[in-house]
Simulated scan of single mutants.
Amino acid sequence: MNREAVEVPGWLNVSRETLAQLFDFCDLVEKWNPVINLVSRAGIADLWQRHVIDSAQLFFKSPEGGAAWCDLGSGGGFPGIVLAILAKELRPDVTFTLVESDSRKAVFLAESARVLSLPVVVLSHRIENLAPQNADVLTARALAPLSLLCGFAHRHLKPSGIAIFPKGAAATHEIDDARKTWSFKCESSQSRTDADAAVLTIRDIHRA
């Protein structure tokens, strides 16, 4: 990735050191991708905007004070590693647990955390077999329908916790479908990277 050519949005107000870490992470993804297939070919071609910036926006939806963050289905580190890089500067009290059942991707996540000196624990488990994480904030990107994500959030969030889920054009349909099984408060805001997408912040999750 040509670091000089990337566009940094004004809302991503971070230090040069943090930007450098984001770029370094992109380099790691590009290095490992031919072996593990972390993102698609199209994703590699637009890695910065499509994955890094799209992931970074979730950080600014999180509440102040939550110290335990859990990212489910972390895959190639989007959003988990990106969020941990931002937190290192902006909220250094936050620690991250990244959950990824694919052992090869879990190795990549652990190596990225080591190279970038991030406060990250990687768990290579299936989500449904994972012990409750008692997280303040929970994220998942391109993992599952909202109805299933609400079940994960109900299990792994503190009662006062918040879930942050980016969703595509079908977000409204997913909300309606999830409400058949779950009761929750939901705020929807337009994605900063896709006019047809939304970021859902969800709390107070209970079975309907």
Results as ranks from 00 to 15, higher is better:
Leu148Val: 10
His206Glu: 09
Trp32Asn: 05
Glu111Thr: 07
Asp177Trp: 14
Asp27Pro: 01
Ser15Tyr: 10
Phe108Gln: 04
Phe25Cys: 06
Ala142His: 06
Leu90Tyr: 02
Ala45Arg: 15
Arg91Val: 03
Leu118Met: 11
Phe78Met: 11
Pro159Ala: 14
Thr193Cys: 11
His173Asp: 09
Pro119His: 12
Trp69Val: 02
Ala140Glu: 00
Gln49Pro: 09
Leu38Ile: 01
Gly66Trp: 00
Asp176Trp: 03
Arg91Phe: 06
Gly76Gln: 10
Gly77Tyr: 00
Leu200Ser: 04
Arg179His: 12
Leu38Ser: 07
Val94Asp: 00
Thr181Ile: 09
Ile81Asn: 00
Arg126Trp: 09
Ser55Pro: 00
Asp46Ile: 07
Arg3Gln: 01
Val94Glu: 02
Lys31Cys: 12
Ser189Pro: 00
Arg192Tyr: 10
Gly80Glu: 04
Asn33Gly: 09
Gly168Pro: 02
Gly73Asn: 08
Arg91Pro: 00
Ala87Val: 00
Ser74Thr: 02
Ala42Ser: 15
Glu7Asp: 07
Trp182Met: 12
Ala135Glu: 01
Phe60Asp: 05
Val82His: 01
Ala110Ile: 02
Gly161Asn: 06
Ile202Ser: 11
Trp32Ile: 03
His206Lys: 15
Gly168Gln: 09
His51Thr: 04
Arg16Asn: 08
Leu130Gln: 07
Gly76Val: 03
Ala110Trp: 04
Gln57Phe: 06
Phe165Gln: 05
Arg179Pro: 08
Ile53Leu: 15
Arg207Gln: 13
Ala87Phe: 05
Ala169Asp: 03
Ala68Phe: 07
Leu146Thr: 01
Ile202His: 06
Thr95Tyr: 06
Ser74Tyr: 00
Gly43Val: 02
Val94Leu: 10
Leu138Phe: 07
Pro166Phe: 14
Ala56Lys: 04
Phe165Gly: 05
Arg155Ala: 14
Ala170Gln: 12
Met1Asp: 02
Val6Lys: 08
Ala45Asp: 13
Leu149Asn: 03
Pro132Asp: 06
Arg114Phe: 10
Val120Gly: 03
Ser101Glu: 00
Arg41Phe: 03
Lys105Glu: 01
Ile44His: 11
Cys150Met: 08
Ala110Thr: 04
Ser191Ile: 05
Glu111Leu: 12
Gly151Thr: 12
Leu12Lys: 12
Phe96Asp: 01
Ala195Thr: 14
Phe108Tyr: 07
Asn2Gln: 13
His206Arg: 15
His51Met: 07
Phe108Val: 04
Asp177Arg: 15
Val137Phe: 12
Gly43Lys: 14
Val115Lys: 14
Thr139Arg: 02
Arg207Tyr: 13
Gly76Tyr: 04
Glu7Gln: 13
Gly65Pro: 06
Ser124Asp: 11
Leu47Asn: 08
Ser124Gln: 12
Asp194Arg: 13
Lys88Phe: 08
Ser191Asp: 07
Val14His: 12
Ser188Pro: 00
Ile202Arg: 05
Ala195Gly: 09
Leu116Asn: 05
Pro166Asn: 13
Arg192Trp: 12
His154Tyr: 14
Ala20Asn: 15
Lys31Glu: 14
Lys180Asp: 01
Arg91Leu: 09
Asp102Gly: 08
Cys70Gln: 07
Glu100Phe: 03
Val122Trp: 08
Ala142Arg: 03
Leu143Cys: 10
Ala195Val: 13
